[in-house]
Amino acid sequence: MENFEKSGINSITENLKNTDIDEKKTPFIKIENVSFSYDSDEDEAPLPPVLKDVSLEIKKGSFVALLGHNGSGKSTLAKLINLILIPTKGKIYIDGTDITSESLTEDEMYGIRRRIGMVFQNPDNQLVATVVEEDVAFGPENLGIEPSEIRRRVDEALQTVNMTQYKKHSPHQLSGGQKQRVAIAGIIAMLPECIIFDESTAMLDPGGRKDVMNTIEYLNREKGITVIHITHNMDEAVRADRVVVINDGTIFLDGTPKEVFSKVQELRTVGLDVPQVTELFYELNYRGIDVDFSELDEKKCAEALANVIIQNRK
């Protein structure tokens, strides 16, 4: 247990240095022809598969947004990656190790869960302890780390999510966004290489949502943590490097936000919205006003609009 823990710390620092080399090599997460269906009750007919023959590769250090309407299989995919669920068919590789192999030991399984953290939707249902710092310590305590090292990691994690001043508070005194940041701190204290956010912003008010999104972006850009962000909110998806749309258990669209959101019609057929900016530009084009709607940034969008207005005046 301890050995793998130390190697975990080393691999993180090494990976931070060698990200460019790593990216060209094997992808961090590799999903190969994975299918999954939930077990049905004995007498009933087998349930339809939630995921059908999905293949996906995710590079180290990337920020992937996973989109799809309810029941599309996106949360199931997330749970397959950190071994909460096991695929019915297909293989999943994390950093080259086959995590779906039969010979995976218990220690290796917990090793994978440490490396791939997961933050859920309801902040209340993930906090275990009655004091913020105790809760952040929960993960490292489970890993069997030395008390002094746990202390150091807890302080650092709370600093990262900007919650140091609340460390002695009890969770029920905090707002939704603050609780969610504590939950994130609890995950980063385990020094993961990848964090999956399973609709972690869905239950928050706009303020909390903004704080959590900024934290997620910071972890990805500054700490080099691979982020998989499952969301319904298109304006959050825009902030990712890559957007993957899942529909009906298969990958429907995959590309940069610009590429994906330019396919307004396709997205609408699977019941998804597009970011407000894209929608505006799409409607303008539809009505015969020619503007380039590949821009997703609100400021740039405003500038483009201003240009159009000036041109039209002339």
Partner: peptide, 26 residues
Amino acid sequence: RRASELATAMECRCYRGDKGRTRMTK
């Protein structure tokens, strides 16, 4: 529903009972 979600969250945080567990504050 909360209990089930909490259990999943605890599994994700590598909880496996007393086995190999340390404490931050002794």
